[in-house]
């Protein structure tokens, strides 16, 4: 069990290492998938590109925002 957890953690650290980035990118992909595959959301398909770019930028801002608000960074400033 411990070995499996270590493997999962190693894979996570190798590919992401940041939960905000992982959640942000996955959420953006889920939204795009819904727009692409759910018929009721078909009118939004034209804006998929903008939604993707905004999702990526929002993820970047969120992860940097978390770093800025960390207590050790506040003290460093």
């Amino acid at each position: 069990m411990n070995v499996i957890l270590k493997v999962i953690l190693a894979v996570y650290n190798f590919f992401v290492g940041d939960l905000v980035i992982l959640i942000g990118v996955v959420l953006t992909m889920v939204i795009l998938a819904l727009i692409n595959f759910v018929g009721a959301l078909a009118p939004l398909r034209g804006g998929s590109g903008i939604i993707l770019i905004v999702g990526v930028l929002a993820t970047l801002v969120a992860t940097l925002g978390r770093e800025v608000l960390r207590p050790e960074n506040k003290q460093k400033a």
Binding site: V16, G17, V25
Partner: peptide, 13 residues
Amino acid sequence: LLFGLKWLKNAIQ
């Protein structure tokens, strides 16, 4: 995207 955002975040920091 995962790799890129991680690198970009570190460089901006």
